[in-house]
Design a protein around this nucleic acid. Structure first.
Lengths: 245, 245
DNA sequence: CAGTGGTCTAGACCACGAG
DNA sequence: TCGTGGTCTAGACCACTGT
């Protein structure tokens, strides 16, 4: 109907161009997690497209995990949740069998020049100051994970002012509320190795016992690397399951 | 237009009922991998539906991995491929860096009563006869995987008659051509443990070195369990990578 | 070229959620 | 009851593939 003010290559399908336009709003802060999107009809009118075309664009973003649809309520910007993290394959339950978030004991929190392999991951210069932290995650008095965490100091200055009691077991809400850094997604890498002496002591396993090592790089909506962490847990507590075809 | 002869609950959407009808054809042998499906228009005419509705049904099956669409050519029954297997995260390349299928050396091939944990997986009775096989997978003279395989004897009688030279590194084509058993999908479970003495010897690693253990249960189109296997490889060769949000 | 799937339209009607 | 997304129709036209 009206002239469509859609970004992107005019040779691409309209639904793709609309999807890209909306995706841009999501990766910039224009629309935030939890926001409701305009209705399909409203978007159709705004961009001069048929409702079906708008629907196709929204479906693409839903498939991509950026939006969430609720029949009768609307379409919403999805809050990232890390339900798909590899950690869900650790058999870390309560003694009663319930899933619980392990408590956290901070063993160390300092500022250090970033070693080169960390700096590369965080997209900062070799040796630039970084906040590093060691934590032990504990469930029913049993140590379950040993974590080493690195943050670029420039973005997380405020994190240093927090007292330990202000830092709960979940860090991402703290990054958001205290440092204005919102984690949108992450990449995880899994391997296994023989427990080094310090890790063995922390996890209370034999030296050289097999441990699962999960490295995670967390990123913001604009793809900026925000946090790198390495977590290690007992291999005998870990069973990853998947279906293939 | 015409009376639709669609299976399923009449309260469900038409596209779902069509999808279920077609899925049934696929899980039974009516349509086999590689077959071309009737065109969208042909299906629409056959079932008295609008083309868009048929398209929606096919899309569901494509998303499900049962069909494959090719623009201008048609829609085809997908051949299962195990590209998504966890084994792709082993750094098993040739010395030149190319991906190659490891050779296979069969160490043992016998018939034994199925131990209960295997029988449970294969859906046969505890102690029922099963074919079991040990293989060592080798790449450029280096052992990379140790495998233990179990098959229900009733379905795989013909497998016993084969000479070792007739069994290549890839078993599933042999199961199909020689035993009429077509693998459609599989479930894999991954964990890590310390190498037991025999595995350490086969893989030429230290005793108690960490090894990745992948258990796979392969199933037919009708969901019958066909093969159980446990594969073990060096943990230092394994790096699983995934993205989450 | 004919036949396939891919995009897009402009509606209708239904099912669900919230006020 | 109203507004939302979900299903469905009956086309038109485009883009790709094979002959």
């Amino acid at each position: 109907m009206t002239a469509t003010a859609l970004a992107g290559d005019a040779r691409l399908p309209l639904y793709q161009r609309l999807a890209e336009t909306l995706r841009y709003d999501l990766t910039q802060g224009t629309r935030r997690p939890g926001d409701r999107m305009p209705s399909e009809n409203a978007l159709a009118a705004e961009y001069g497209l048929a409702p079906g075309t708008v629907r196709q664009a929204l479906s693409a973003l839903v498939d991509d995990g950026l939006l969430e649809r609720f029949h009768g309520r609307g379409t919403f910007v999805r809050r990232p949740s890390f339900d798909r993290s590899l950690f869900r394959f650790f058999r870390f339950r309560d003694s009663s069998g319930e899933w619980r978030i392990p408590e956290s004991r901070i063993l160390k929190r300092t500022v250090e020049p970033a070693p080169s392999h960390i700096a590369r991951q965080l997209g900062i210069k070799d040796g630039e100051p970084a906040i590093t932290m060691s934590r032990l995650r504990i469930l029913s008095d049993a140590p379950v994970l040993a974590e080493e965490i690195w943050l670029p100091k420039a973005r997380f200055e405020a994190f240093l002012d927090l007292s330990e009691s202000e830092i709960g077991p979940l860090l991402y809400p703290v990054y958001d509320s205290r440092c204005g850094q919102l984690v949108a997604r992450a990449e995880e890498t899994l391997t296994a190795e023989a427990a080094r002496p310090e890790i063995a002591r922390l996890l209370r396993v034999d030296r050289n016992a097999p441990v699962i090592v999960i490295d995670r790089l967390a990123k913001g909506f604009d793809d900026t690397p925000l946090e790198w962490r390495r977590s290690q847990g007992r291999a005998d507590q870990f069973h990853y399951h998947t279906e293939i075809r």
